[in-house]
Nucleic acid binder design. Structure first.
Lengths: 217, 217
DNA sequence: CCATATTTGGACAGTACATCCAGGCTAGAC
DNA sequence: GTCTAGCCTGGATGTACTGTCCAAATATGG
């Protein structure tokens, strides 16, 4: 973490915790830059996506001329890197205790991975991530339904035409999914399989103790 | 307390551009909170994901006692909301010009949409970007340890020095994480908290029935 | 030091879990 | 059709777990 011998700029000292926090949160997908609006140069940079470093020119442009209702925050707007990566960027004017602008913070988020994922998803007709899609449910009863539903879809056999082997297979999956570790799960599974609790318990013990059976060759 | 002129807290004035920038960039998926470490209350909040507001208690605890090598930035660590959303969180201690801690910034990023997308993609055999991240926790005892560990790290208070309020907070989180829906969880939690089973049940009932509490002396 | 708040271990009642069994049902063999 | 064998069922039963209560022990705070 060595800094230059001259000691860090007081502005860097003040704002770096925020910058490092954002850089940590967004991992390798975000670049955080602290600019000096006076000299129009980079003060410090975290997770650099290009080869810029402290002291390089900022190429910031005139933020002063932007909409004053934004109250020192600009964006998000889009940038395009030379290699084709798309960035979402925001900027904020940081002021000292006297209210004078002392630095400009820029956060550049690489949207490319997200957009690729979104493209794959929409190609398969998956819903765009807007409303919460309960793909994997926190609720264990939904998980039960999900496991059983998957099995029915795989075998094309509805619940009421299931054979003993089917029930064993489904219960095996449910057991692997640790469904029976939650309270009151067994009666729910029995109901979902249209079977009595006794049957479920019987099949489960048979499933969990295959040792005594194949012991005799 | 505040030695400020009228209007918003000077700290809010100073840090709000950063906060608003992050909140804008990350859209509805990130919550940005500014805490007052003195009073342990929320100073301001952007994109709130729960119903917290300015003036509410932070439940932050003392960050001072944490590992000094972290240099005022903590995390990312994981939080779990009641509805199952998983958050990645970072915290940063913000210091004034004299180097004194003046505020604590927390950014909470909702990872759920990303994880859902990742689940869909991996179901179609698409290459997963990152390594073996436990998508859903199978071992609930790990989850208990994780929730407690997170709290300890957040507050810098080891289990044996916890106050009643700490225990209440931890049990609240565990309850939100639906930990007590699994069999045998309560004794395990009691053991992990170095507390008797009775205490856990007592605190839990107190936690779950704040409605008809202080009506009668 | 006392007063109050909190935790504790243990006893207890109430559930839920798991097993067992006798009888009923179904399917296939004869 | 009848028989047999295997499976399922409902209920009875014993065990394990859950949650509550309370007096005593202990911590907390003035």
């Amino acid at each position: 973490m060595g800094n230059v011998e001259e000691g860090p700029d007081s502005r860097v000292r003040m704002w770096s915790p925020v910058c490092r926090a954002v850089a940590l949160l967004l991992g390798p997908y975000a670049e955080v830059v602290l600019h000096d609006p006076e000299t129009d140069r980079v003060l410090e940079i975290w997770n650099p996506m290009t080869s810029r470093g402290p002291g390089d020119p900022s190429l910031l442009g005139e933020l002063d001329e932007l909409d004053p209702s934004a109250q020192d925050v600009y964006g998000p707007y889009e940038k395009l890197l030379a290699d084709g990566r798309r960035l979402s960027s925001v900027s904020a004017v940081l002021r000292d205790a006297r209210g004078e602008p002392s630095a400009v913070l820029c956060i550049n988020l690489d949207r490319t991975p997200l957009e690729q994922a979104a493209a794959v998803l929409s190609a398969f007709g998956a819903p765009t991530v807007q409303g919460p899609e309960p793909l994997f449910e926190q609720d264990w009863s939904e998980r039960i339904q999900h496991v059983i539903g998957t099995y029915v879809r795989e075998t094309g056999r509805p619940i009421e035409r299931m054979t003993r082997q089917d029930r064993l297979a489904v219960l095996g999956r449910l057991d692997e999914a640790r469904v029976f570790a939650v309270r009151r799960a067994t009666p729910v599974v029995a109901g979902a399989l249209r079977v009595s609790r006794s049957t479920v318990y019987g099949l489960l013990t048979e499933l969990r103790a295959p040792s005594a059976k194949d012991r005799q060759p």
